[in-house]
């Protein structure tokens, strides 16, 4: 048993960290419900009857474009998660399970993606996407984000797949399963926690990214929400009510996705530690 004193210390540190991490978020959410004057005069005051003003939300939800930006973000993020998980797991399985000629070389090549940030290739990516006539399409974003997320997910999923006992795959083979059956019915269910982990940290940078939406899909109603919010940030006037409301609502979809994955995620983080 841990001593109570050190337990208190640990909880105090964790509590402090939580407060620090939550402070800006709470600030944004609180102020999104306030009138413009109250935001600037008393930024730390929670919304009260006398300064309450949902004008920001009215603007955000009244603007049909914003709703479609949300949808764009959602499509791009879920599309990326799906492609990353599917191809990442398949590649990880192939690299760990099958011995073929260029195995090690291929694994090395893929891990270069972990070390070199994809943004270095922005110019080439723009050229490629425009040559493919895919500027202002969500597919372009999904493809780029999948490429960005694959290296690390392959790396992590390989580690987990390697931990699946060899006997299990061979039992599957003796049971008459094809390699695809083994992958979909034995390997995938067993690395679910790892996939949830990968899904969460694939999702967050993609959802928050401003760079590639700006480069690849900046107009034509294909903006993602992070880019869409920029329309409220003008050169001369900034509509703070709308910005704060849009940011607050932007938290919700990731939060929902996170909750979906988190049950698996927590198991994923501890299962490595216990073994």
């Amino acid at each position: 048993m841990r001593k109570p004193a050190s337990a208190i210390a640990v909880h105090a540190i964790l509590g402090l960290y939580t407060v620090l991490a939550l402070f800006p978020i709470v600030l944004v959410v609180m102020n999104s419900f306030k009138a413009k004057r109250a935001i600037f005069n008393t930024p730390l005051q929670p919304p009260m009857p006398w300064n309450f003003d949902p004008i920001g939300y009215a603007k955000v939800f009244g603007d049909s474009a914003i709703t479609s930006y949300y949808l764009n973000s959602l499509v791009v993020t879920t599309g990326t998660i799906f492609m990353t998980l599917l191809f990442g797991a398949m590649a990880a399985w192939a690299l760990t399970e099958y011995k073929f000629r260029w195995n090690t070389l291929l694994a090395l090549y893929l891990s270069i993606g972990i070390m070199v940030p994809i943004r270095l290739g922005s110019v080439a990516i723009i050229q490629l996407v425009s040559d493919l006539n895919m500027i202002n399409t969500l597919s372009a974003l999904v493809l780029v984000y999948t490429a960005q997320s694959l290296p690390l997910s392959i790396f992590i999923l390989s580690e987990f797949i390697a931990q699946i006992p060899k006997d299990l795959r061979e039992a599957g083979r003796c049971d008459g399963l094809t390699e695809f059956h083994i992958f979909f019915y034995i390997v995938l269910p067993l690395i679910r926690p790892a996939m949830a982990t990968v899904a969460v940290f694939t999702m967050i940078p993609v959802w928050n990214d401003l760079w590639f939406p700006l480069l690849l899909a900046p107009t034509n109603g294909k903006q993602t929400i992070t880019l869409g919010v920029q329309q409220f940030l003008g050169q001369y006037i900034t509509d703070w009510n709308a910005v704060l409301a849009a940011l607050s609502t932007a938290i919700i979809p990731v939060l929902i996705l996170y909750v979906i994955f988190s049950r698996q995620l927590i198991r994923g983080l501890t299962s490595g530690a216990v073994k």
Partner: peptide, 19 residues
């Protein structure tokens, strides 16, 4: 391949599908 040989193998580690 193993599937076509009409054999069944029992492994030392049992190799039961945990899920």
């Amino acid at each position: 391949p193993p599937a076509k040989r009409e054999i069944a193998m029992v492994f030392q580690s049992y190799a039961l599908y945990p899920h």
